[in-house]
Design a protein around this nucleic acid. Structure first.
Length: 474
RNA sequence: GGCGGGUUUCCCAAGUGGUCAAAGGGAGCUGACUGUAAAUCAGCCGCUACUAGCUUCAUAGGUUCGAAUCCUAUACCCGCCA
């Protein structure tokens, strides 16, 4: 027999009217006496888990976005006329609401590496993002469909996203280990763009041919194929299949790429509504169009207005972005996008990047960094990022971060996490990831509260000054 | 007691006359990770006044222009035989 049986979870019903609540206070998350078994009932954050499918609205009206508070414009506003596009809001999905701005942890292969969905919920994560390309390769979208969709498959009853596989156009194509929001100082094209046999992705007008990182076999992705896979996977929010370029591509190539991505976007919309019709018994899956255009204002504005002209439910801000242009690029794009649809900034999680993107109109943000970096020992704190593997911490019995409300900090010491990671014990990755993910979820909770409370600018200044005071990365 | 094998920089382990401060692992140290080909990767890892010098390959002596490498003795360790 398939499926899970926890009746107490099934009895929770979907409430689209949930109001945003203040971010969890330190004591509201986990306390000693509360943590024995079930993580799932402890979260007091501002969203409600979804109920069974029959109670979920099926049509497109199940998806929506309400703006709650807009940031006031200032003289320094980067949008047209000093506009600041930042705002708080609520994204409604068939599997629950997302209070924005929100951090979206990345569960590429239908799992947070080293962490259970229950634990993600307990630390306040409102939603998770998986990857269509990786799930297509393994286990295959059919399996996930049979399981009842991504959420059921991985035991996550909140909202889910899938990336289209567009990121793999870059990571498998141009090169591995190349960052997105990067400092390009001193970099040359050859440092970033792989050639010949090194390449595992090849772009043409119709789509992309991938060489499987798993076994070397060749796979074909196109707008239609990506939509088909993402519909089978069944996430609440999908992304249109796009081409992700590097900052090292020529201006000419970026132009071609933006146009190609637009042609793919149109095909994605068409295919999306065809599949939506075909699968009319399932909850509506929203589709976000992705805006490319690298560092060029004209291309970004063009791409945004083109994508905005299509019948998307929301938008993704994607592509390579020079770090110092994070705010500008977001502002250019949001100038061209409608205010009544959510905007997701793909793949960012440097603290300063998050502030810049929120201030200029980003609503949700995903990134692998907190999880990946945690597995490698780097710990985010309000006072910057540092490495728990440092020898000096082997006998430091304080928490990772003084005053942190996360499960790790309230139960375990630096010395213990240091020991586990040094010993390559899996639980070390778990504890470090719990902390870092909580850090970003809480950061976005606090940013949201600061916008609603009218003190965003002070909060931003204070937070950034403190975080980067000691020259921290991240 | 006899015969044979061995002793290399923290550990394991290459190296049997110059290209050796000495391969490779591990451990250790430091750093990086931004829509996850990442429980990964990079640098350091005898000492210093570091584009060079100094002190090392069980210890002491010797052969040689030159020794971790050859010879002698000693000390341990491991086999087999008594």
């Amino acid at each position: 027999m398939r499926g899970r049986a926890p009746d107490k979870v099934r009895t929770v019903t979907y409430e689209s009217s949930a109001q945003p609540e203040t971010p969890a206070s330190p004591s509201s998350i986990i306390t000693d006496s509360e943590t024995t078994h079930d993580f799932s009932e402890k979260s007091e954050l501002g969203w409600k888990p979804a109920g069974p499918l029959r109670e979920v609205p099926l049509g497109r009206e199940a998806f929506g976005f309400d703006v709650v508070t807009e940031l006031p414009n200032t003289a320094e506003g980067l949008g047209r006329g000093g506009r600041r596009h930042g705002r708080t809001g609520i994204i409604h999905t068939p599997h629950g609401d997302i209070h924005t701005p929100a951090f979206v942890p990345v569960a590429t292969q239908a799992t947070m590496k080293a962490v259970l969905p229950e634990q993600m919920r307990a630390l306040g994560s409102q939603c998770l993002l998986a990857n269509a390309f990786h799930l297509f390769e393994r286990p295959g979208e059919e399996i996930i469909d049979q399981a009842g969709g991504l959420g059921k498959f991985m035991n996550w009853d909140g909202p889910t996203y899938t990336d289209s596989g567009g990121f793999q156009v870059l990571s498998l194509g141009a090169g591995f280990k190349k960052t997105l929001a990067m400092d390009t100082t001193g970099l040359k094209s050859d440092d970033v763009i792989a050639k010949g046999k090194q390449r595992h992705a090849f772009v043409d007008e119709d789509g992309v041919t991938f060489k499987s990182p798993l076994n070397g076999s060749m796979h074909r992705f196109s707008a239609e194929i990506s939509m088909g896979i993402q519909h089978k996977i069944g996430a609440d929010i999908m992304f249109a299949f796009d081409e992700l370029t590097t900052l090292m591509n020529t201006r000419r190539y970026q132009e071609e790429s933006v146009e190609r991505t637009f042609r793919w976007a149109k095909r994605c919309v068409t295919e999306h509504f065809r599949l939506t019709e075909e699968c009319s018994g399932k909850p509506y899956q929203a589709l976000f169009g992705v805006v490319q255009g690298a560092n060029y204002e004209d291309l970004r504005r063009l791409a945004a207005s083109e994508v905005a002209s299509l019948d998307f439910d929301g938008f993704g801000i994607g592509g390579a972005i020079e770090k110092k242009l994070m705010g500008e690029i977001s502002a250019w794009i949001c100038d061209e996008l409608p205010d009544n649809k959510p905007r997701h900034v793909l793949g960012i999680a440097a603290v300063d990047d998050i502030f810049a993107a929120v201030e200029n109109g980003g609503d949700t943000f995903d990134c692998v960094a907190p999880a990946r970096v945690a597995r490698n020992g780097a710990i985010y704190t309000a006072d910057g990022r540092w490495n728990v593997l440092r020898a000096a911490l082997k006998d430091d019995f304080g928490p990772l971060e003084e005053g942190c409300d996360c499960y790790t900090c309230t139960h375990y010491s630096r010395a213990y996490v240091h020991h586990l990671l040094k010993s390559r014990e899996m639980t070390g990755a778990t504890l470090a990831t719990l902390h870092n993910e909580r850090f970003f979820v809480r950061l976005l909770d606090n940013i949201r509260a600061s916008i609603d409370g009218g003190y965003f600018d002070d909060f931003k200044k204070e937070t950034l000054t403190r975080f980067y005071r000691n020259g921290s990365k991240g």
